[in-house]
């Protein structure tokens, strides 16, 4: 039975990626360029493009869950406030976490790899949605702070790249620095995917031994400067904030892991 489910998941996953690719092509070559051409005002264009991208991501998550390719539990959504500017900081395990997170937060800003914005098709897509391109590090900091200051919410993965499940979190300083410069309200997000799928250097067709279970917890919002003692100089402050954030998300992941092992847990 377990073997049969594995075979089903392999076929299902293949079909899913085919579907993902087809929708991606339709968006990249047709729908988003159309929005780019038809809608004149960039602000309006951005809103529509982001709604459309989120719509596709909501659909992908729904399909993957309905096909039982993944399980997905999300807690703490009450901490997301669409009326306010929040900095959403999540740990990063798989390419799918981006899809799930972007499906949850309407109109959220995010940073797109410079490699993506160098690809002509993806550039139009990312440009129409006005996502931030990760080109030069100094501009990136200013851009992210600017977006937060202007009232947008921003999703960042402070690890900067996909990490290996179970290893201690090592956040880059950029996210903490952005949080401090913008005096942002941070919503830490602890994200687990067990077993890990689509990790770095793992091809899509090597599917995990059992159905990946996503558990995403939004933690209560915290003001960036409340995690740093008053009067700390700016260099110390970003290191302190960074350690505090690693601690918050790390503790939540550890708590979940302990819960997993407990025989009392169903």
């Amino acid at each position: 039975m377990k073997h049969l489910f594995y075979v089903y998941r392999f076929i299902g996953t293949s079909l899913f990626w085919f579907f993902f690719g087809v929708i991606g092509l339709i968006y990249g070559f047709l729908l988003l360029p159309l929005v780019y051409l038809v809608i004149r005002r960039p602000e309006r264009r951005q809103v529509i493009a982001r709604d459309m991208i989120r719509g596709a991501f909501v659909m992908f998550v729904w399909v993957a869950r309905t096909m039982r390719l993944i399980r997905c539990d999300i807690t703490g959504m009450e901490h997301w406030d669409p009326q306010r500017s929040q900095l959403l900081l999540a740990n990063h395990l798989t390419l799918i976490d981006v899809v799930i997170l972007l499906s949850l937060f309407p109109q959220v800003d995010c940073v797109v790899k410079a490699a993506v914005t160098r690809n002509p098709v993806l550039r139009v897509s990312a440009g129409t949605a006005n996502y931030i391109s990760n080109r030069a590090p100094d501009e990136l900091l200013d851009f992210c702070v600017g977006r937060l200051d202007s009232g947008s919410s921003l999703l960042l993965f402070p690890q900067g790249t996909r990490a290996i499940r179970g290893e201690p979190l090592a956040f880059k300083l950029g996210a903490a620095e952005i949080a401090l410069r913008a005096n942002a309200t941070i919503v830490p997000i602890a994200l687990d995917c067990n077993p890990q799928m689509l990790a770095k250097r793992v091809p899509w067709y090597r599917i995990p031994p059992s159905q990946p279970h996503f558990r995403i917890s939004l933690l209560p919002p915290v003001a960036a400067d409340s995690l740093v003692p008053e009067g700390t100089d700016s260099r110390r402050a970003r290191h302190e904030l960074n350690a505090a954030l690693e601690g918050l998300i790390g503790a939540e992941l550890a708590r979940r892991e302990a819960e997993n092992r407990s025989p009392l847990q169903s």
């Binding site: 590090p137 900091l141 260099r235 970003r238």
Partner: peptide, 8 residues
């Protein structure tokens, strides 16, 4: 100096 200092 850290990575942010390097950028600055």
């Amino acid at each position: 100096l850290d990575s942010i200092d390097a950028v600055d």
